[in-house]
Computed example of a mutant assay.
Amino acid sequence: MSALLGVILAGGRATRMGGGDKGLRVVAGQHLIDHVIARLAPQCGALAINANGDPARLAEFGLPILPDSLADYPGPLAGVLAGLDWAAAQGATAIVTAAADTPFFPTDLVTRLTACAGPSGLCLAASPDETGRVQRQPTFGLWPVALRDDLRAALTGGLRKIVIWTDQHQAGQAVFDSAPFDPFFNVNTPEDIVAAEALMGAA
């Protein structure tokens, strides 16, 4: 078992897409999550999916399904915690997360996150926006298992914003180029599906 596992965050409610699983929307003939699996699997020792609700709907992917351990959809950090608990049971030391609706993220994500990790072992991905300002991509990160109890306590105490917690632990930052387009482009709306298919066609 590799010391580094991958967790695809698919626990959101997809309100801008009209509900349901964004990862199950079809883009260029495949589920969005298929594109994510294809990019993340070569970079990690094993994968799991963080998702809530009936796990049977995701059975075709053949991966462990990790529900949030906290109620009321407390956000992506709950998915990170579920991933860390799973990794701890596997004897792993860290996980890398990727969002289920982001089909173009870098193929060197894990290498760059690992190289840029802060003193605690945390690191977030980032990329410049259209103005050149670097924006963190907090659903793409390297998360050490050693911090899972601290994260659990923070979530139980009401914390929801990822960067507040990562800043407390001096997370590093791996900045990825946004040319010719932002690799962290995510599919939130039906119009984004059209845009993603155009980008895939151009590639």
Rank of each mutant, 00 (worst) to 15 (best):
K22W: 05
G201L: 01
D68P: 13
A92M: 06
P128C: 12
A203V: 04
D34P: 11
N186C: 15
S178A: 15
D72I: 09
G79C: 12
L47S: 08
A82V: 08
G23C: 09
A100Q: 03
L58Y: 13
A51L: 09
I8M: 02
V96F: 04
A56D: 13
L122K: 00
P76M: 01
Q30I: 04
G172V: 01
L5M: 13
T131S: 14
A28Q: 03
A78K: 01
C123N: 04
A87N: 03
G157Q: 11
A88P: 03
V187W: 02
D54S: 15
D54E: 15
V163C: 10
Q30C: 12
V7P: 00
Q137N: 12
V96C: 05
G62A: 14
A48H: 02
T97G: 13
C123Q: 02
D182R: 13
A154F: 00
D34I: 05
G53Y: 09
A89W: 10
R112A: 08
G12I: 04
Q90I: 07
P106C: 12
A146F: 10
A100I: 04
A153Y: 15
G6R: 01
A98T: 08
D177A: 15
A10M: 07
V96T: 04
I33M: 10
A126F: 09
D177I: 14
L58C: 14
G29N: 10
F104D: 00
L147R: 01
I37D: 00
I49P: 00
G12C: 11
G91Y: 08
E197M: 08
G83D: 00
N52C: 15
G83I: 00
S127A: 14
A46W: 06
T166W: 05
H35T: 01
I95M: 04
D85W: 13
D85P: 10
D129Y: 13
F105A: 02
D72F: 13
A48M: 08
A48R: 00
W143N: 01
L63M: 07
V26G: 14
A171G: 14
G19S: 14
G6F: 07
V175Y: 03
K161N: 11
A88V: 08
A171Q: 03
F140A: 09
C116N: 07
P42H: 10
A146C: 10
R112Q: 07
N186I: 05
T131L: 13
G201T: 00
D21C: 15
L81F: 07
A100E: 03
Q168M: 13
A195M: 09
L70A: 09
A38G: 11
L66H: 05
I37H: 02
N186W: 07
G19T: 11
F176K: 03
G132L: 08
W143F: 12
G83T: 02
T131K: 11
Q168H: 13
A196E: 00
Q173N: 13
G158D: 08
L147C: 11
L70D: 04
K22D: 04
L109N: 01
L109V: 05
G62M: 15
I162W: 06
P42A: 09
E60A: 15
A179F: 14
